[in-house]
């Protein structure tokens, strides 16, 4: 058995982690039919994200204090969340922004899906390699009823997007309006 030390392995993580803490992210994705890009919003708990950035950069990272936070986030997300297109190439990563709330941390970016998710896969290693169990759940926005989510973990890092689940289908709003009453009583 072997495992490799990445640069991140040199990190002196200052963030304490409970031995039984399960790292988790949740990701919302949606294909913008106009731009053809996959819009991605990733939720982290601040503690998990700090641990990931600390490990990835070899120094202690505090979200509240880091001057180059956006740059570090962009690098980390680009390296750990990919959209693999049908031809096998990797979709271009486009940084959008980050948002810090009291107990939440959100990161936003786009992946250029070139208008379609047919035959595409997601490769997701967010929070991997931190020495703890981790789960990343990717949910398709506007997927309608049912549990439309993909689960990534230490055993599952790449999953095909299934169009039958509605991923990538740009569900247009059903066109309807209330314009004329049905005047049943008028019929003879």
């Amino acid at each position: 058995m072997s495992f490799r030390f990445s640069l991140a392995a040199l990190a002196l993580a200052l963030i304490s982690m409970s031995m039984h803490h399960v790292l988790a992210t949740s990701v919302e994705i949606e294909l913008d039919s106009e731009s053809g890009k996959l819009e991605v919003a990733v939720f982290f708990t601040p503690r998990d994200l700090e641990a990931a950035l600390t490990a990835a950069n070899g120094r202690a990272i505090r979200l509240d204090k880091e001057d180059k936070l956006e740059q570090l986030l962009e690098t980390y997300l680009d390296a750990n969340f990919d959209l693999l297109l049908a031809d096998g190439s990797t979709a271009t990563f486009l940084w959008v922004g980050q948002e810090s709330e009291l107990r939440d941390f959100w990161v936003y970016f786009e992946l250029d899906a070139q208008g379609s998710l047919k035959g595409c896969s997601i490769q997701n290693t967010l929070l991997a390699g931190l020495g703890a169990e981790y789960i990343s759940t990717v949910t398709m926005a506007k997927a309608g009823g049912g549990k439309r989510s993909l689960r990534f973990d230490g055993h599952q890092k790449k999953l095909q997007l299934d169009e039958t689940q509605g991923v990538g289908d740009d569900h247009p709003a059903e066109s309807s309006s209330i314009t004329h009453p049905e005047s049943v009583g008028a019929a003879r």
Partner: peptide, 22 residues
């Protein structure tokens, strides 16, 4: 009963230290 950590992508020394210390 603890499951193993994921060693994919490397593991920080701090994490290894805590594992070994525990």
């Amino acid at each position: 009963i603890q499951g193993p950590p994921s060693f994919d992508g490397g593991m920080s020394l701090e994490s290894l230290k805590r594992r070994r210390a525990a």
